[in-house]
Design a protein around this nucleic acid. Structure first.
Ligand SMILES: [Mn+2]
Ligand SMILES: [Mn+2]
Ligand SMILES: [Zn+2]
Ligand SMILES: [Zn+2]
Lengths: 142, 142
DNA sequence: ATAGGAATGATTATCATTATCGTATATGTT
DNA sequence: AACATATACGATAATGATAATCATTCCTAT
């Protein structure tokens, strides 16, 4: 757990919709949420914000460095709290559950490979799409 | 170079639009093409096909295993000829040029990481977004 | 050459996301 | 606390990529 984020420090006015969205990521049960996920969760808890605002806020939070955006194969973006530590993802094909991992070997190999070809890495995304072999897969939905 | 692909063998009727699209991938100068790229290239060479057909054919080719689809950060899908050998990509942020690489260590590490967590890898995508440090970057456009 | 099913292409629909714009609100100042 | 004003909100329209429709055209087997 890290210290609560203050929107002010991020250069963002502290508004109700922003606080609600931020709260979802800080205290919600899911780390990785799409705009639609956020919108529905807020509606579900009575806190209604406009869908346009959700999209706007997510993008603002991303630009402010509060959130990180991912593209997990498919059309919609997924966001998660930026805890400062880069990691990659395993996405379950059956239930969409997301598990995180970090592998120093993979990371350094990437840098090496890029360097050998005359590139300096700016960013990268590594997503593993897999099936649960263990029976912990509750099946369906993130 | 591999032997020319016969649509018949892929269970696909041999039609003009399909042959034109296939030809672009087999004899064109770009390995990685979006639907729009394909559409514009065909229009440019006088071979006009409908945009709907382009999308349909690309999806069919993907399902038939002739093409592989990638999602290089951003909204549009990119396709390339399936030459049977898996590889990952470095995408230049400045010119969108795509370079391919394969690293056995990274590949096996992925499998190991997934296995340790009870997953069996079905697929994965690893894209490195980087800047050319060498001056070979002609800047802009795939 | 013919027939019948599949493919094409113009168009419309869909889905995620962004842009508009009039109204509401946060925050610094009286 | 009431104000002023820049900003943010939210309903809705617009956009861009891709999928679905459907009447017409084209392969391919007879
Ligand atoms: Mn994560
Ligand atoms: Mn490739
Ligand atoms: Zn990584
Ligand atoms: Zn790989």
């Amino acid at each position: 757990m890290s210290q609560p984020i203050h929107l002010k420090n991020a250069g963002l006015k502290s508004t109700l919709p922003r606080l609600k969205v931020l709260n979802l990521f800080e205290n919600g049960d899911e780390r990785h949420l799409s705009a639609e996920d956020v919108y529905k969760k807020l509606l579900g808890s009575g806190d209604d914000v406009g869908l346009a605002t959700v999209y706007r806020v997510l993008t603002q939070f991303e630009q402010a460095g509060l959130l990180v955006r991912h593209h997990f194969e498919g059309d919609k973006s997924v966001f998660e709290l930026n805890q400062g530590k880069h990691h990659d993802h395993i996405v379950c094909i059956q239930c969409d559950r997301v598990e995180e991992f970090y592998d120093a070997t993979i990371e350094s190999r990437q840098r090496k490979i890029a360097a050998e070809r005359g590139f300096s890495v700016q960013d990268h995304s590594l997503n593993i799409y897999a099936n649960c072999t263990k029976l912990k897969c509750p099946n369906k939905r993130i």
